[in-house]
Design a protein around this nucleic acid. Structure first.
Lengths: 220, 220
DNA sequence: TAGATTGTTAATCGATTAACAATC
DNA sequence: TAGATTGTTAATCGATTAACAATC
């Protein structure tokens, strides 16, 4: 069928960040199509949704070997599944959240992890007012003092940093226990962490500032 | 002094997004320096903090006319102030949040607006359980029904979208009342909004997915 | 078969890096 | 003045777009 052409895929570490960063957006657009029961899409149509060019879309997908069929286009379902696989959604990574205040609780009690195939295993804080608080039927906020003990029995892949001070106090423990990635919401550069594991920084404030810049520009 | 060279600045709409998106990071790094009482920095030193090249830094700053002094480097304070001005931090834009659930409340009760010179004027929802809830001494969650009336008396520049359904029901009202920008946390593409005003999309889930991808890569 | 649309190569465009003259 | 470091031009690199042959 030409749709299962994973075999043709090139060495994956050659793929540029520009492409990788577009994959989640493809994933979103394809889900929109699925929700509307659209089963087939051409690069041109998808380009409309993605606000990019058909050329870029074909170029992007070919990094992974090409998922389409000449004269037909792409199967939305196949494409959605393949991109999900590439993104690691089926890999069931596990995570802990460091910091139960602010955005910590929101993230903990949010489908974002489940929806993207990540299993939240624990939430930690040092403040009495948070410790023991129930997040859902399966999770309760634990004391940061118990983190190391916890990591001995539970394999954790991803640390989600919410509270900067707390992060500083336990980043070594987490690295020592071989976490594989960091999702950083602290708003601070994590200068102590060397580049051996991937970090995704969520600088929420930054985007508010670029928005203000753009508004300013429009006005001038 | 060569430090007040705003006059030399080129036509601002020529400046690429790549540069603009780095400005908030410069702003953060410079604040770090200020906090450590470092008053002077060379492009080479700043490159270390920014994890980029000295060349890029000089190139970037020259988009705005150059803020440095040959043989000396850059005044951290001047640089910080200038970049803040470019980003519109001194412009006192006003904002409303649409959606008091989830991240809405967190954003509302968060220094992010104040710190970046944006004044939060209102939070709106349609659910009884939120309406009337106090955010701080100055703000209470209002009914979405009162939004249009509110906009007649209060000039709003930025709409922060948190709840997608709520957004759909009031985006027209906001556009009609001439908001200037959108900060979108709904996780959905805003297809109804044409490109006349700037939008900053916060796709939080996307970054979790790219993080998982990178972890996956490292493992192979 | 003819039409459509991909996969892929080649051309263009833009962003980053290197180099160096200007100057504090 | 000599040393340092910027501002700016030129060279390189990478990403996007265009074009078209392959093929369903």
């Amino acid at each position: 069928m030409g749709l299962d052409s994973f075999s043709k895929s090139k060495r994956s570490d050659e793929i540029s960040n520009a492409v990788i960063n577009r994959l989640p957006k493809y994933y979103r657009c394809l889900r929109e199509l699925l929700n509307n029961d659209i089963l087939r899409v051409s690069s041109k149509e998808l380009a409309g949704l993605m606000r990019t060019t058909a050329s870029q879309i074909r170029q992007d997908f070919n990094c992974f070997g090409g998922f389409g069929q000449q004269g037909y286009g792409y199967s939305v379902k196949t494409l959605y599944t393949k991109i999900g696989m590439i993104l690691g959604i089926t890999d069931n990574y596990s995570a802990v959240i460091i910091g139960a205040g602010g955005i910590g609780m929101i993230l903990a009690d949010n489908p974002v992890f489940t929806k993207r195939g990540v299993i939240l295993r624990g939430v930690f804080d040092k403040l009495k007012k948070y410790i023991g608080k129930e997040i859902n039927s399966e999770l309760t906020v634990r004391s940061i003092k118990d983190l190391e003990q916890f990591l001995l029995t539970t394999k954790i892949d991803i640390a989600v940093f919410v509270d900067y001070e707390l992060t500083k106090s336990c980043v070594d423990i987490l690295l020592r226990n071989k976490i594989k990635g960091i999702w950083n919401f602290t708003g601070h550069e994590l200068r102590d962490v060397d580049d051996t594991i991937p970090i995704e920084n969520m600088y929420i404030e930054d985007t508010l500032m670029t928005l203000c810049y753009q508004i300013k520009q429009k006005e001038e």
